[in-house]
Simulated scan of single mutants.
Amino acid sequence: MSFEEDDAVILHDQHSEYDGEEGTVTQVMENMFGDATYTISFEDGQETGIPEDSLEAVEDEE
């Protein structure tokens, strides 16, 4: 699943201080291998270069 800017996601990265936290996609980049990487903004910071497989979509509560 790919993500777009302004999508709400949960980060799963045990090496990140934001592991398990919900954030918002602020930038989508493509690396030299053609894979998407993401910049995610959290309430108190951001993480860059996050691979798609470290992200989980937040389900809408509608």
Rank of each mutant, 00 (worst) to 15 (best):
E56Y: 05
M32V: 15
E4V: 10
Y18W: 15
E62S: 11
Q46T: 09
D7H: 10
S16R: 01
L11Y: 05
N31Q: 01
D13P: 00
E61Y: 09
D60L: 13
T37Q: 14
D19E: 04
G34I: 07
V9A: 07
E5I: 15
S41D: 15
D53Q: 10
D13I: 00
D35L: 12
A57Y: 01
Y18P: 02
T26R: 12
M32S: 13
F3G: 04
T39H: 07
H12Q: 09
I50P: 00
H12L: 10
V58P: 01
F42D: 01
S16Q: 04
V9W: 03
E4Q: 12
D35F: 13
H12V: 12
E56L: 09
G23P: 09
A36M: 10
S16P: 05
F33M: 12
V58S: 06
E56F: 02
I40Y: 03
Q14E: 14
Y18T: 01
E47F: 07
Q14P: 09
S2K: 11
E30M: 12
M1I: 11
Q14N: 11
G45K: 10
V25D: 03
Q46P: 00
E22D: 01
E47G: 03
E4W: 00
G34V: 06
F3P: 04
Y38I: 07
D6S: 13
N31T: 04
T37N: 11
M29C: 09
Y38F: 15
T39Q: 10
G20E: 04
N31H: 05
A36R: 12
A36I: 01
A36G: 02
L55F: 03
S41R: 15
D35W: 05
